[in-house]
């Protein structure tokens, strides 16, 4: 692990992240903005999957999804930059591994849902009965994204980083 940390900290990207004291705070702001966007759009889609706001046809609501994905991309980019900038802070931190675990669960849940139900979900019209599989995917998504948020926010307190 020590070799890996030394190597990563010596990369140009890592040095860039640490070069200006304003870089980290600005990335934190972007990370919080991306999080709100992801949580708002994906959370609304998840609640629709659970059977809330039944008057909304799923196909229409899915048009918002690129904005949720945009939030995810902002956070993927800033998140990777945090890691590259200070890999030791994360690798030593148990909260980091729990966060990554829930990130994988959220991603896998979305992937399985899209491949299995991606076309059927578009047929879910206003007031249709919601299939149980949709509700399960919605619950898993909401729970795992909130866990990602929780373990991410707890990073400085559990692992004593930052």
């Amino acid at each position: 692990m020590g070799d890996f940390v030394t190597w990563m900290r010596a990369t140009g990207v890592s040095e860039w992240v640490r070069s200006d004291p304003m870089t980290w705070p600005i990335m934190e702001m972007l990370h919080f903005i991306g999080m709100s966007l992801l949580l708002g759009v994906i959370g609304t889609l998840d609640f629709r999957l659970l059977g809330f706001m039944k008057g909304i046809p799923m196909a229409a609501l899915r048009k918002l999804m690129p904005w949720g994905i945009a939030g995810f991309v902002i956070n993927m980019v800033t998140g990777v930059l945090f890691f590259v900038g200070a890999p030791d802070q994360y690798l030593k931190n148990p909260a980091f591994y729990v966060k990554i675990l829930f990130l994988l669960i959220a991603g896998l849940n979305a992937l399985i849902f899209e491949t299995r139900w991606g076309s059927r979900v578009l047929e879910l019209g206003p007031l249709d009965r919601t299939p149980t599989a949709f509700k399960v995917a919605g619950v898993v998504s909401i729970f795992s994204w909130f866990m990602v948020l929780y373990w991410g926010r707890m990073l400085p307190f559990i692992g004593n980083a930052f």
Binding site: S36, L37, G40, V41, G43, I56, P57, A60, L61, L64
Partner: peptide, 19 residues
């Protein structure tokens, strides 16, 4: 903020098919 931005996007025309 997430819920408000979702509504803002709809009002600005994203997913205009959403009632």
């Amino acid at each position: 903020v997430g819920a408000n931005w979702t509504l803002d996007l709809r009002l600005l025309g994203v997913g205009s098919g959403v009632p």
